[in-house]
């Protein structure tokens, strides 16, 4: 089982779009895939038309009183399941703190699915908290969608610093440029001449594309309604690159 998180401290950078489209591509290849919507806003659940509700809320889930499997829903796509969001996830830090080994909880919850799913995507909430620490611990790779602006690059540096300070393996971080708007000079110059301190920067960047926004109205991954769009093609290329990284680290 390979756990892939899509993470950034900033919101609105394309985390959910990345998790949803990559998970869809993985499942299309025939790999049993789970996407866990950890964001209380529940955007990934919305895209897959699944009610963002966990009976008993996040507390019950962390306490492990019920099998995680009971909360998983099949999506409209074969081999792609979803663990929906719940509004109570906003208090997830509190529940985690109460548990033993608070940083290992997500890892522990996912363990029984080792043979069930080949890929698990974690769609993370935008923050840096105990939830994020759990995600960094459980994930084999952390994809960091980054908008090519000065502030976003600064945020990425903060994430790397956090990794260093907390003795986490920084090679897990896989940044890539997201929502790239070629009409903007700043975007172009950052993408074409990317900062040298962005180790493991993936070559593929995802363009700014209104089709990505239309995922909300179609409530489906890009490949389902705009398979030939530039962004859909870019997600395919990104997925190929991510897979190469995963096999490299095996």
């Amino acid at each position: 089982m390979k756990v892939i998180a899509t993470y950034n401290i900033k919101g609105g950078v394309g985390k959910t779009a990345t998790a949803v489209n990559l998970a869809w591509l993985a499942a299309r290849e025939g790999a049993p895939t789970l996407i866990w919507d950890l964001d209380p806003q529940g955007a990934a659940s919305y895209y897959f038309r699944v009610k963002p509700r966990i009976k008993g809320g996040g507390k019950r889930l962390i306490e492990g009183k019920r099998d995680l499997d009971d909360f998983i829903r099949g999506t409209d796509f074969e081999w792609l399941d979803l663990l929906p969001a719940d509004f109570s996830y906003r208090n997830m830090d509190l529940y985690l703190e109460q548990a033993k080994k608070p940083v290992r909880q997500l890892h522990k919850l996912l363990k029984p699915f080792k043979h069930e799913y080949y890929y698990v995507f974690l769609d993370c909430p935008p923050s840096i908290s105990l939830v994020s620490e759990n995600i960094f611990d459980a994930a084999s790779s952390v994809l960091v969608p980054t908008i090519p602006t000065t502030l976003s690059l600064r945020t990425y540096k903060q994430i790397r610093k956090f990794f260093r300070q907390n003795r986490l393996d920084p090679s897990k971080l896989l940044p890539f440029f997201s929502m790239v708007d070629r009409r903007k000079q700043l975007h172009c110059s950052i993408v074409d001449d990317s900062p040298t301190d962005m180790q493991n920067l993936l070559e593929t960047s995802i363009p700014y594309d209104s089709n990505v926004e239309r995922m909300g109205s179609h409530r489906a991954p890009l490949g389902e309604f705009a398979p030939n769009s530039r962004s859909a093609r870019c997600y395919e290329a990104l997925w190929e690159e991510v897979k190469q990284h995963l096999s490299h680290w095996e």
Partner: peptide, 23 residues
């Protein structure tokens, strides 16, 4: 038991012809 599915270009003759992965 769960089904396993795989999209592949050529029909493999042997298991070793399959791409690396769970299948």
């Amino acid at each position: 038991g769960r089904d396993l599915r795989l999209r592949t270009g050529r029909m493999p003759r042997f298991a070793r012809d399959l791409p690396a992965g769970q299948f």
